[in-house]
Design a protein around this nucleic acid. Structure first.
Length: 571
RNA sequence: GCGGCGGUCGUCUAGCCUGGACUAGGAUGCCGGCCUUCCAAGCCGGUGAUCCCGGGUUCAAAUCCCGGCCGCCGCACCA
């Protein structure tokens, strides 16, 4: 293998395919861009990564962060409410001569100054024709405006009207369940709904292997807070964080700055303490996946780049060799956007309730009326009159009655005495409000790739997957030094014993010992146990470290504990 | 989607320009055997390639032409 000649991404892709981490889906039919299969090792590693994610994101706040699961197939109405049906489609127009594509609405606004947001593609096409707008690059003629919907569409059941989509994020499943989980959390904020699940986005041009997929796994938390009383996260204010806030970026700054969390909050670079908390957690997670601080930072998205629901978004970027800085997580302050929209579209009560410290006593003016009198005088019109009285501001009615002696509703003059204003004192114990949402969201396959790329090392022309030891899919391997019956028997005994200890262990007797070390270094097995002739005499074996290649000799009955210690996260 | 480059055993690659002896060669991996007392050792044997797919040109196509698919790089969108 000519290792030196290839870049790291190729080496990762090569290793992934050769040793069974991942490969393109539907390969024997030529493959389909944007879809990848996970092989045996890839699947195990991904499981480990998801476990780790839960350990970092959920476990420390387990009393207030809970995991749920909701369907991938999502009804039209839900994604209409979320704004995705509207916002996940771009009107695109193509130049007939050079083939370049443009956002049709942006192009028109630039050239004509007309506000055309929300217009239909046909109208946009018309405007382009009427104003003779041409390709801004080559001057060629432009074609029809077409919407490009990034959502995968399907149909639910046999009825064509029941349109469904594959969810582009798991978040909506959390929002629609807000009330139920709120009640399960005994109506206390803040709390978080975590979800790990597959999503689909019909990317125009997926590329870059595992990094841009049409179907992938998202791990996200919708963290609900009371904006007036967000609570305090267990936050280390002195922790350092690398940031490129928009405030600096728009002034031309390219490099992130390192600041304490305290500074970032004081300067308003991070708008909320919970945002800061999840960002720090994200940094910790990437550290544990083998990405150092220098190889990651957070970049704030400009207002134009942000998703339709967000008022602040930071992307967590990780350095990759070929693809440069790659987003592995997004941290969005979604405000009350999603719940507000779902309240609107579903008509359901998705409010939280905020109790006042002291019940408030307020004097309120209420409109009262003599229903019997109204009924007798206005007959069937009485109902309409009462409805209008209910809607009208009591202050206004009071003024009208005072000024004119009557109030005019539904075209009738209702005189003082039939309608009057009463003042009464109400005791208000609290108020309804829509919680705000802080959302950390991770692309799991990207984490997988990044972990692999950062783990891949070379030593003496050999590939070593120096993945953090607690992440290794296979934890240990047992070798007889030579293919001799006595050694083989002993080795199999040891292997069996380790299996019974619950460890994930392989056994291999084929090839020279060096070749076997190399085989398992390449897939990141942290511990190689070798049974040699001395083992037969004194029940000791050699334990070799994947990264240093150093060996120690341990007694067989200490072996499980030795291995456990090596692959443990606690150091 | 456009432009550029590419696609040959699991992997890396020779051959392609200049069509024919290519029954597609090598290396590595993998399997079996011999050997071997700790880092991809050696020897022998074996396995393994619809030459990305479809069509066309030709007596003859891995090779030339067209279309598609996939990949990489650049442009636009994103976790």
């Amino acid at each position: 293998m000519v290792l030196g000649l290839k870049d790291k991404a190729s080496k990762v892709a090569d290793l992934a395919q050769r040793r069974g981490f991942y490969w393109p889906s539907w390969e024997i039919y030529g493959g389909v861009a944007g879809f990848y299969d996970l092989g045996p090792l890839g699947k195990e590693l991904k499981n480990k990564i998801m476990e780790l994610w839960k350990k970092i994101m959920i476990h420390p706040l387990q009393r207030i962060v809970v995991e749920i699961e909701t369907p991938m197939i999502t009804p039209y109405k839900v994604l209409e409410a979320s704004g995705h049906v509207e916002n996940f489609t771009d009107p695109v127009v193509e130049c007939k001569s050079c083939g370049r594509k443009f956002r049709a609405d942006h192009l028109i606004e630039e050239v004509t100054g007309l506000k055309v947001e929300g217009l239909k593609p046909e109208d946009l096409t018309k405007i382009i024709k009427e104003n003779n707008i041409r390709c801004p690059v080559c001057g060629g003629e432009l074609g029809e405006v077409k919407p490009f919907l990034l959502l995968f569409q399907t149909q639910i059941g046999p009825y064509e009207g029941d349109r469904g989509f594959i969810r582009p994020e798991t978040a909506q499943g959390a929002f629609v369940n807000f009330k139920r989980v709120y009640q399960l959390m005994r109506e206390k904020l803040p709390f978080g709904i975590a979800q790990i699940g597959r999503v689909g986005r019909n990317e125009i041009s997926p590329r870059q292997g595992l990094l841009r997929l049409r179907e992938f796994t998202i791990a996200e938390i919708e963290f609900f807070i009371d904006p007036l009383n967000p609570g305090r996260p267990p936050l280390d204010y002195n922790a350092k964080i690398r940031l490129l806030p928009w405030e600096l970026a728009k002034g031309g700054q390219k490099e992130p700055v390192e600041v304490t969390v305290k500074e970032a909050l004081e300067k308003g670079w991070i708008m909320n303490e919970w945002m800061a908390y999840w960002m720090l957690k994200a940094k910790e997670l990437l550290n544990l996946l083998g990405v150092s601080d220098e190889d990651q930072y957070f970049e704030e998205k400009s207002p134009e780049e942000r998703a339709h629901y967000s008022s602040q978004t930071y992307d967590q970027l990780v350095k990759t060799e070929r693809y440069g800085w790659m987003e592995v997580s997004g941290h969005a302050y979604r405000g009350d956007y999603d719940l507000r929209r779902h309240i609107q579209y579903s008509g359901k009560d998705l409010y939280a309730f905020r109790k006042f410290k002291e019940p408030k006593r307020v004097r309120v003016k209420v409109v009262r009326w003599n229903a019997k009198e109204l009924g007798m005088r206005y007959k069937s019109k009485a109902k309409e009159i009462i409805e209008e009285l209910k809607r009208k501001d009591p202050e206004v009615i009071e003024r009208e009655l005072y000024d004119k002696g009557y109030v005019e509703v539904a075209g009738e003059r209702i005189e003082k005495g039939i309608v009057w204003i009463e003042e009464r004192e109400d005791v208000i114990t609290g108020e309804k409000f829509i919680p705000h949402v802080v959302e950390p969201s991770f692309g799991v396959e990207r984490l997988l790739y990044v972990a692999l790329e950062h783990a891949l090392k070379e030593k003496d022309g050999r590939l070593i997957l120096s993945i953090p030891k607690y992440l290794a899919p296979i934890q240990a391997v047992v070798f007889p030094l030579l293919e001799e019956e006595a050694l083989i028997n002993k080795a199999k005994e040891v292997w069996q014993m380790l299996l019974e200890e619950g460890l994930r262990v392989e056994y291999d007797e084929k090839g020279s010992i060096g070749r076997r070390y190399a085989r398992y270094d390449e897939i990141g097995v942290p511990v190689a146990v070798t049974i040699d002739f001395q083992s037969l005499e004194d029940d000791t074996v050699t334990v070799r470290d994947r990264d240093t290649w150093e060996q120690i000799r341990v007694n067989i009955n200490e072996l499980p504990e030795v291995i456990r210690k090596i692959i443990s996260m606690k150091k």
